[in-house]
Nucleic acid binder design. Structure first.
Lengths: 345, 345
DNA sequence: ATGAAAGCGCTAACAG
DNA sequence: CTGTTAGCGCTTTCAT
């Protein structure tokens, strides 16, 4: 870790500079810059002119320290490679739009220690709110979340005990519903393909509930394979091929995300496998970008954007009223869409 | 809501609290928290214990004001929906890793006014550096960039005059090289499908250079279509179908990004069009996620991750040395890969 | 190795 | 409507 920036050469402009240039007190300049209080149109214009001419940009650090107010909302997510989290961020952006609040993003890489570090780092900026993916955190992280005098919204998942508020879907429910849909459609030899579990609690919960629900229908998972690393079409193809080679009698494959499911679909079509007649397929997330595949993939919409937006709205409400009594719990309904790869022909 | 809400009304902890709890001066506590100066192992341990027990998190706002250093790097990009920019951010993250610097992301939505606002907002936090997509900014924005006493790296594009440093590829060159590859392969009736230009300068530059280079080969663009809104497979399918209906004699389609190109490819395969024999296709970006399509798409790698990383490294270097004299100019080479959709059978 | 004093640039809270 | 006075919580600088 190197040191942050040493002070730079030219002295940055301050309120005082504008004050002197416009012949008005610093306080009045401050009022103009913030559109606060009553300032005569004349002084106002004079101050703005001076500020613009000098190229003055207020120092929010000083402002925040003095006012004890920070217009930042910390958002902590595991990854940006996942395609899912950018959508959540879009939702957050939408929910914060017009509130004067700005999201600041931190990446935890699915590593608890790193999440802890990022959390500490972000809390040290005293944000107006904190949005964090998942309900599973290290003890230290939970302690920080509780100790921080900030509204906290845990997102994506509602299966567990939130520190404060929570917005998400039940991944257990999503997994169970998919299992039921698959079983009712008549599939019996079911395989699972997904990310390595310790890294991804939500995928794990889906998997557990999936197998649990299958068991209630008297079905046991016939085969499964976990992988680490990124999820692309190619990975989906390769893993699907390998799994089918190993267990040729599978009649359904449930994937932990749409991208590898799409890869699997493309492999099956190439291999001349009858989908969904001989083999059914389903993914997870409901990635819109993938609408337009040769067949529409069965999947569950994880409401990513909506989750981000609702979480942001909770923070925004707290920031406005200044007081948030209780944690809100918002459980959105994961919508299963069978597409064209789930019903047996 | 019967659960009693955990109290979180307390005054945030300060150095003074830790100082009192550990019986050491604030100054020494400060030294411990920053691993600075000489502190005896004994005091150090005592302070850390107290801090941990209380759950103290230092206030960076106060720290930044006092020290005049901020470990934040502002990153301004047009969008997060684009799949391309998350990759740039990953590069930035990688480049900043281990430097103690943290990226803070702002979204400009391809709107100059919004870019200006976001820029102002971020500069007001006095970041250690600024990374911003593109070379085209409003006059006011350019003025701010120049006035800000901060290293600035403009990224993605090198065709223009940077304010300070620049890391990117030449989109003109990328467009021209693709035109040459297409022409040499023998295609003659060439169509273009891409985002609406005023929003996206880089796409515009590719398009201009593309048509220019074709012209030098005596070829004129046979048809083209621009669109607004997101880019998904479906959009690519629909637009390709429409364009081909309008101009059935096209023998090549150049897309402004891989996602719609992939949609186009899927449409062509569905429609039984011989690719690349009767119709060639090419996209842009080199999205790895899409490896695994039925045919490997011709595309140009835009070096997104590398660009983010190199830009971050420039900032990191400036932050470390404290002085950056000149703007660096790094032009990476856009690598054209013909895949399987460009060579005539 | 530790402490005391003096701000960093701004805003809250009053005065006028 | 405008100005004055104190800090915000930390770090710098200089003593000890």
């Amino acid at each position: 870790m190197t040191e942050p920036t040493p002070p730079r050469a030219r002295r940055p402009l301050t309120l005082r500079d504008v004050s002197e240039a416009s012949g008005v007190s610093e306080m009045t300049v401050s009022r103009v810059m913030r559109n606060r209080g009553d300032v005569s149109a004349a002084t106002r214009a004079r101050v703005l002119a001076a500020a613009q001419r000098l190229g003055y940009v207020p120092n929010k650090i000083a402002g925040a320290l003095a006012s004890q107010r920070v217009n930042l909302v910390a958002v902590i997510i595991p990854s940006l490679s996942n395609l899912v989290f950018p959508e959540v961020l879009n939702g957050v952006n939408a929910g914060l739009d017009g509130t004067g609040l700005q999201p600041v993003v931190g990446i935890s890489r699915y590593e608890p220690e790193r999440e802890e570090k990022v959390l500490y780092e972000m809390l040290s900026w005293r944000p107006s709110g904190l949005i964090i993916a998942g309900l599973e955190h290290s003890d230290a992280a939970r302690a920080m979340l509780r100790a921080a005098d900030v509204p906290v919204v845990e997102i994506m998942d509602v299966d567990g005990e939130p520190v404060d508020s929570v917005v998400g879907i039940s991944h257990r429910r999503a997994g169970a519903e998919m299992a039921e849909a698959i079983a009712s459609a008549g599939y019996r030899r079911i395989g699972f393909l997904g990310t390595k579990m310790p890294m991804d609690h939500r995928a794990r919960k889906r998997f557990e509930a999936f197998t649990g629900a299958l068991a209630r229908s008297g079905i046991e998972i016939a085969d499964h394979q976990f992988y680490a690393g990124g999820s692309g079409l190619k990975k989906g193809r390769e893993m699907t091929e390998a799994l089918l080679r190993r267990s040729p009698d599978l009649d359904f494959l449930y994937y932990s995300n749409d991208m590898i499911a799409a890869g699997g679909l493309l492999h099956c079509l190439d291999a001349g496998i009858d989908v969904p007649g001989r083999l059914g397929l389903a993914g997870f997330n409901g990635i819109e970008l993938l609408d337009g595949l040769p067949m529409q993939l069965a999947t569950t919409d994880a409401c990513r954007r909506e989750i981000g937006q609702k979480a942001a709205e909770i923070i925004a409400r707290c920031a406005e009223t200044g007081a948030c009594d209780g944690g809100e719990r918002i459980a959105l309904a994961p919508r299963l869409s069978p597409g064209e790869t789930l019903f047996r022909a």
